[in-house]
Each structure stands twice: as structure tokens, then as C-alpha cells.
Design a protein around this nucleic acid. Structure first.
Lengths: 206, 206
DNA sequence: CGAAAACTGTACTGACGGTACAGGAGCGCA
DNA sequence: TGCGCTCCTGTACCGTCAGTACAGTTTTCG
């Protein structure tokens, strides 16, 4: 009864490692069943097709992502009362975490699945959309908190600012991969951090 | 003698349309040869393998991309003497151009090929890197020009600012695709534009 | 013990990328 | 006129991969 979930997890572990190493399309089911020590029939007992594997992988990835954000910005919130300071600390922590990844960010699954090298099904696209909306809600709430205390020097929409966080992260991942410079991603986060600081800094202050 | 290039272009046209519609992996050679009215042998006469097709497609895409940037920021430069104003106008024009795409941005090939759903070869990764470096040089020069006239309110590296342009574009594409909101991309460009304006606006000015 | 869950084994299909190779049409040139 | 080159066609074949079908077996839990 429980062994099923174990095997499923083992497949997902092998899949995650392979997908992050060489991409989803280049990861074959045959290779996963060898790794997992299972048969092909066994694989298809757990996943109807490769799309469902992608779905499970994506859901897992997003869950983990959310957990990391909870941790980082929760910790930041403990370190500062002011929501702006907390957010700035959170971005700093995030940048440091991204710097510490030895080979750079392994790549966002949400991005890989919506830059659609392969044709993924509607369910996956919907999960992707929900993930992006969750990011918007999370960071949008933070910006609204900030705006209740600090007047922005320019009128900007909280949701668009929230989207900017996702944009910088996703774009930074793409750029650092294209450039083969892992440092670009944390650097871009810090540039964005400077922009946010600038936006809510009272006029005339250094 | 010249007919070869014609056929090659026809293949690339068919490939570009198909790839932008459903992704590179989902585009089969068989389908391209039907579209082009050529045989499989004919296809492999022009392209050693699918990787070389990707390469040709990518080179074409980047060339076109550069042309668009030349046009937009060239036009912007005509409209304003001040490099900051010119850059801000350029971003506005870019945002408008992105708004006018009926189905949203079709997706950046550089991004699809470095979020590596499939394993692309080194040559392609190098072309990708060169493209990102060209963007950095282009926008880096603009920011250096701006900095010779305007003092930034915060000390930021011109190259990192230049990378931010690529980041916002690539990230915006990913986000607008994930959200299924084409407007997000031009919106993000405008948010970035506000940040740039803020950065070079003299302290104390509204 | 019995039933359901969790597989194994075998055999097969169709799509796809790719190879090999022989040959032919059309064109420019000496 | 014929040689050679570019630009293909045609045919046959291969390995990999996702996926199907389905019968049978082991494992696990109540």
C-alpha cells in the first residue's frame, strides 16, 4: 500500500536529477526504469504517460519553491519590523542563496515548460499559470504592505512590481544560462533590490 | 546554384513557423518536408541534422532581433539628444511594439535553447552566449553614455544594468507565457523604464 | 486467508531522427 | 558535346523512444 508511493518517489527522484542535468526531452523513460530498477510496465503503472511525469515533477518543484520563499521571507520578516526593510533583507538572502548554488540555478521547471520546447498539455499550462499567480499574490501582498508605510516615488502597481520579482528571477536564470555566468542571476536580483530601495526611498535622501 | 538557397530558405520558413507555434521538439522533419514539398534526402542535403536546423534558425532569429533593436533605438536616438531620454523613448517604443504583437511574443529562441528541454550542442550554446554578450554590449554602451551626462542616484554597474534589459525581456516573455497574459511583457518593460528614470532622476525632483 | 495494490514479462506499434547509397535532372563551362 | 557540379529523388533500412495490451505474479494489508 505504501510501497507504491516509495517507488513513485524513487522514479521522481531519478527523473528530477536527469531532467535538471540534461532537460526533459533528453530524459528517456527507459533510462529512468534502469536507474530505478523497475520495469517499463511498472513505470506506466505509476504514470499514465510522460506528460504525467512532467506534471508530478512540476508540482514537486513548485511546492519546494514555495517552501524556500516561505523560509527566506519569513526569516527576513523576523529580522525587521518595517516591511520594506524585511523585503530588502529577503532579496539579499535570496541573492545569497542563489550565489551559493555551485553550478548556478538548475533552471526553473515553470520556465522550461512554458518556453514549450515540447507540446505540454493544458493541465500543465494551468499549473504553470497558478504558480505564476501564487508568486504574484505573495509578492503583491508584500508590496502592498510596504506601500502602506512608504510612499513610492513613482506610482507603480503592486501586482506589476510583484511580477517584476518573477520576471527578474526567470529572466536572470535564462541570462545566466545563456552567458554561462552563474553570478548573473544573484547580481540581477541585487540590481532589482537597488531599484526597490530607490523606489521607496524618500525623495532627497542619499 | 542559387536554387539551393531558395529551398533552404523555404525549409527555414516552414521550420520557423512550426517551431514558434509548437516548439522545436514538437516540430518533426517529416512535417517540414511535406510543407516544403521536398524529400527527406533533400532535407538532409541542406542540414546535416536537426541540430543544424536549430542553429540556422537561431542565427536567423538573432539577426532579426538585432535589426529590430537597431531600428527602435536608432529611431529613439533621432528623437532625443539626451542619451537618457533617447533610451527611455526606446523602451517606450519597444513596449509598444511588444503590445502590438497579436498573440503575445512568440517566444525567444535563445531562451528556449538554453532552458534546454533538449540537449543542444556546444556550437548552439556558444551562439546563445554571443547573443547575450551582444545585448550586453549594446545596452551597456547606452548606459555608459547616459552616465556621462547623468549621475545615477545609486552606483550601479553599466553592464549589470544592460543585463537587466535582457533579464526583463526574457523574464517577461516567460512570465507572460506562464500567465497567458501577453500584456505582462510590455508592462514589465515599462516598470523597468520607470526604474531607469528613477535611477537617473536628480535627487529631490518629482 | 482474501482482495486489492504493486508490480513483471512479453510482444508489439508507430513516430521519429538518422544513415547509406545509387541515381537523375538541370546548369554552367571548356 | 560532354564533363562536372549542385541539387535534389527514391528506396531501403536502423535504433531509440513513447506508448499499448494484457496476462500473470508477488507483495501488502486488513
Amino acid at each position: 500500500m505504501r510501497k507504491g508511493r516509495e517507488t513513485r518517489a524513487k522514479i521522481l527522484d531519478a527523473a528530477e536529477a536527469a531532467v535538471l542535468a540534461k532537460g526533459f526531452g533528453a530524459t528517456s523513460i527507459d533510462e529512468l526504469i534502469v536507474e530505478t530498477g523497475i520495469t517499463k510496465s511498472g513505470f506506466f503503472y505509476h504514470f499514465r504517460d510522460k506528460n504525467e511525469l512532467a506534471k508530478a515533477l512540476l508540482e514537486r518543484y513548485i511546492e519546494n519553491d514555495e517552501r524556500i520563499y516561505d523560509e527566506i521571507f519569513g526569516r527576513a520578516r523576523e529580522l525587521a519590523d518595517d516591511p520594506l526593510q524585511a523585503f530588502l533583507i529577503g532579496l539579499k538572502l535570496l541573492s545569497e542563496l542563489l550565489s551559493d548554488l555551485p553550478n548556478g540555478h538548475p533552471g526553473c521547471l515553470v520556465a522550461t515548460m512554458c518556453t514549450q520546447e515540447r507540446a505540454f498539455d493544458r493541465e500543465i499550462r494551468e499549473i504553470n499559470r497558478q504558480a505564476a499567480l501564487m508568486w504574484r499574490r505573495r509578492f503583491g501582498a508584500m508590496f502592498r504592505d510596504i506601500m502602506q508605510v512608504h510612499k513610492p516615488r513613482e506610482p507603480l502597481d503592486a501586482d506589476q512590481l510583484a511580477d517584476m520579482v518573477s520576471t527578474v528571477l526567470e529572466g536572470g536564470i535564462v541570462l545566466s544560462k545563456a552567458l554561462k555566468e552563474p553570478k548573473s542571476l544573484p547580481d540581477q536580483v541585487l540590481v532589482f533590490r537597488t531599484f526597490v530601495r530607490l523606489l521607496f526611498q524618500p525623495a532627497g535622501q542619499p
